[in-house]
Design a protein around this nucleic acid. Structure first.
Lengths: 233, 233
DNA sequence: CGCCCTTTTGAAGAAAATCAAGGGCAGTGG
DNA sequence: CCACTGCCCTTGATTTTCTTCAAAAGGGCG
């Protein structure tokens, strides 16, 4: 367990043999610190590195013609950004640091050498991408109703941050504003606020500053129709 | 141009050398006919084949707890379904034939042999998957307003069916019902109908039975904020 | 302390859903 | 040939959900 969040993530995604693990340990990962609200990658750019989140939270987003922002996903420690790099495609969206982040840069040619030699590592990248796609799909599915969207997002983030190694069993530390949540769910921050209040009144959660304590996990999953199977890692 | 829609699709996706093309031609593609409204693949299943649409239209969908259906994408001739197969992941959604379809089945091990030997083919699959993901993302982005969603969907399908080889320059043959559109955009079919009427009144389109004639392509793209770059093929 | 960012609440208005009922059109069968 | 049936499209009236506009109340930090 002394491996980096990156290697642990790959291990969760595919069944790697000891030689693959050893090869991963030889990668030269360059850790960079990124300030809150600064872009990590911008749309149109074709990165020469595979990026991996080491610390902090980030968000994928696009800007609409009217200037409004749509968040299309959150990145937690262990997540990749810029898998587009593996096929030399430019980014179709940007990624911004929501908290102060540490991001690892892995030279693309090193990564490609590994995927060519170790099918398990290639498979891990595919599964990471399919997991991201599955999350996008659930966002579309849950978007029929504010309570459904919001409870599903909480379940997703709670589940993912638990997998990524958060300590507490029933508390989700949410370093994002209600404005961010609104941009993610296509709701106004006002409506997000009212929906959170409703969840509090329903006895599902309790909120204090930036933490959400889940009081009724079963009721929560029911409201969200949440089933974690779709998240492959 | 005598190659199948499958090979033409791969050629559009990546720069294949003549040896890769020749290898693709040796694949044993088993063509199957699927009746309208029948499932092609169901959630939970791990296919042993890579499927490719040869004729007709299909839709990816999931069912909600309340029984309602959300369509999360349309498949046109040349599109793959079940890329999940390449990493032995079960499907997280189902695929249904919207019209009568012909679907090609490609044995997975044959495909894997090709991707291992020809990096261009592997890259083509990655790009296909990234293109699907980009489309999912635009659906989230355009979902802020019914006119925006609908015009964007029309632009997407118009663009894709043109690339896939439709004849007419300004007519989109839409073999889907307003109910299907509603399930795709998370709107009721009633609201879809009213929004189509509004587009007609704005002089953007003209409709007759199952065809949509785009009268004002520029106005249409403006209403949709449509930029086809994100569709990699 | 004072400032800025975020959360919270209220009231009015817009967007979309729901409920309800016709209407067109293709296919089917008498 | 025409009635019947099923499916889809169309429209109206009403209700719900969410947004917009406006303002006040925490909360962390220089």
């Amino acid at each position: 367990m002394s491996d980096s969040v990156f290697i642990n993530k790959i291990k969760r995604l595919a069944d790697c043999g000891p030689d693959a693990i050893q090869a991963l340990r030889t990668l030269e990962i360059d850790a960079n610190e990124i300030g809150r609200r600064r872009d990590i990658l911008v749309a149109g750019y074709s990165p020469d590195f595979l990026y991996v989140m080491l610390e902090g939270w980030a968000a994928r987003y696009s800007l609409r013609a009217d200037g409004s922002r749509r968040i299309t996903g959150f990145l937690l420690p262990g997540d990749f950004c810029g898998i587009h790099a593996v096929c030399h495609c430019p980014m179709d969206h940007s990624i911004v640091a929501i908290t102060k982040c540490v991001v690892g840069k892995i030279p693309l040619e090193q990564m490609q050498r590994l995927t060519a030699r170790h099918p398990a590592i290639d498979q891990a990248l595919w599964r990471a991408k399919l997991g991201e796609e599955a999350i996008l799909r659930t966002w579309l599915i849950a978007a029929d109703d504010a309570l459904h969207s919001l409870s599903h997002l909480f379940c997703e983030l709670f589940h993912r941050s638990k997998v990524a190694g958060s300590r507490d069993e029933e508390v989700l530390v949410l370093p994002i504003t209600q404005e961010d949540i609104g941009d993610a769910l296509n709701l106004t921050s006002i409506h997000v606020n009212r929906t959170i209040r409703r969840m509090r009144e329903m006895g599902l959660i309790d909120t204090s500053k930036r933490e959400i304590r889940i009081l009724d996990p079963e009721g929560m999953k029911r409201a969200a129709s949440f089933d974690p199977k779709y998240i492959h890692a």
